[in-house]
């Protein structure tokens, strides 16, 4: 049997899990921020192209 196998498995396991989590979390942050930016920008363009809507309120 390979001596020290558990250390190698632990090191590679931790390394891999860290980046799987990191990439997942970063992509989620990117997605959430992108959606929010798109929604807000669309709202802004709607309100600037139709200023009468705001006046009627």
């Amino acid at each position: 049997m390979l001596i020290g196998l558990e250390y190698v498995v632990a090191a590679y396991g931790i390394w891999l899990c860290t980046f799987v989590c990191y990439i997942f979390l970063t992509k989620r942050r990117l997605k959430i921020a992108s959606h929010a930016v798109d929604a807000l920008e669309q709202k802004n363009t709607e309100s600037s192209t139709r200023p009468q809507d705001q006046n009627n309120k």
Binding site: T26, K27, L30, A33, A36, V37, L40, E41
Partner: peptide, 20 residues
């Protein structure tokens, strides 16, 4: 790759805060 991904996120987050 990670740097570009993280930079995209940062740019978007700053833009969002700006809009808010």
């Amino acid at each position: 790759y990670l740097l570009l991904l993280r930079y995209q996120t940062e740019k978007r987050t700053d833009r969002l805060n700006q809009l808010l």
